[in-house]
Simulated assay, not measured.
Amino acid sequence: MTARRTAARAGALLVLLATAACGVPTGGDPEAIPATEVPYGLALPSPGATAAPTSPAGLGEPRVYLVAGDGALVPQGRAASAGTLAERLATLLADLATGPTPAELTERLSTALRPETSLSVAGVSGSTATIDLGGSAEAPSGRESKTAVAQIVLTATSLPGVDQVLVTRDGEQVEAPLPSGELTARPLTAADYAPLTVAAPPS
C-alpha cells in the first residue's frame, strides 16, 4: 500500500469517526456534503495504486541484483553513469560491491558478496566483459558462491552492451558455479542464473 493511499484511507476514517461522533443518522437517503466542508485533498480524484520501486523504472536502466528475504535475487535500479561501457560497468559493479543502501536494508535486502570483496572490469571485448574478483575476503562457497556469481552476472548484463561475463580471480580465470552446481569456464549469461531470481522452495 502506498503512502498516498494510506493517507487517503486515514483521512476517510477520520471523516467517518467525526460524523459518527456528531450523531449523524445512519438511515435515510444519502445527502451531498458541500465541497467547502470536505477536508482538503479528499475531494480530489484518487490516483491508481503504485508498487514500491524494487525494479528498474525503464528498459535499459542499470540495476544491481540483491538477495531478498526469500532467497531470490531482485533488481534494484541505479542511476546511469556517463563514460565508456567499461567505465559505466565499473560504476555499477562498485555499487554492487558496496551492498544494499540503508533504504534497501529496511526492505530486508542483502548480498552474498563479502564486504572485503572488490569488483573491477579487467576488459570488455565485444559484448563480453571480464570481471575480476579481488580483495582480502575468501571466495564464498556452496550456495553463497552461486548467489554471489549470479549477482555479478545479472548486474553486469543489465547494462546494455554487456551480454556475457567471464569471471577471474586476481587475474586468473576461474570456473564459476552454475545454479545446478556445475562449474564452467565459458562466458556466463543472465539466462544461466534466471532460476535464482525465483524464491527457493522451503527446505
Score class of each variant (00 low, 15 high):
residue 2 T to E: 09
residue 5 R to G: 10
residue 11 G to L: 02
residue 11 G to Y: 03
residue 13 L to E: 11
residue 17 L to W: 07
residue 19 T to C: 00
residue 20 A to V: 07
residue 21 A to N: 09
residue 21 A to H: 10
residue 40 Y to L: 05
residue 44 L to Y: 10
residue 45 P to S: 07
residue 48 G to K: 12
residue 49 A to S: 14
residue 51 A to I: 02
residue 53 P to Y: 00
residue 54 T to L: 11
residue 56 P to D: 01
residue 59 L to I: 03
residue 59 L to G: 09
residue 61 E to C: 02
residue 65 Y to P: 02
residue 65 Y to D: 08
residue 67 V to S: 09
residue 69 G to I: 09
residue 72 A to N: 12
residue 72 A to R: 15
residue 75 P to E: 07
residue 75 P to C: 02
residue 82 A to R: 06
residue 84 T to L: 10
residue 90 A to G: 15
residue 93 L to H: 09
residue 97 A to L: 09
residue 100 P to D: 08
residue 101 T to E: 10
residue 106 T to A: 02
residue 111 T to L: 11
residue 111 T to D: 05
residue 113 L to P: 06
residue 113 L to S: 04
residue 118 S to W: 06
residue 119 L to N: 08
residue 130 T to R: 08
residue 133 L to H: 13
residue 134 G to D: 00
residue 137 A to T: 01
residue 140 P to K: 08
residue 143 R to C: 00
residue 144 E to C: 08
residue 144 E to Q: 15
residue 146 K to E: 15
residue 154 L to P: 06
residue 158 S to A: 13
residue 163 D to W: 01
residue 166 L to C: 09
residue 168 T to W: 03
residue 174 V to G: 01
residue 180 S to N: 14
residue 182 E to Y: 00
residue 186 R to I: 00
residue 191 A to L: 12
residue 191 A to S: 14
residue 194 A to L: 09
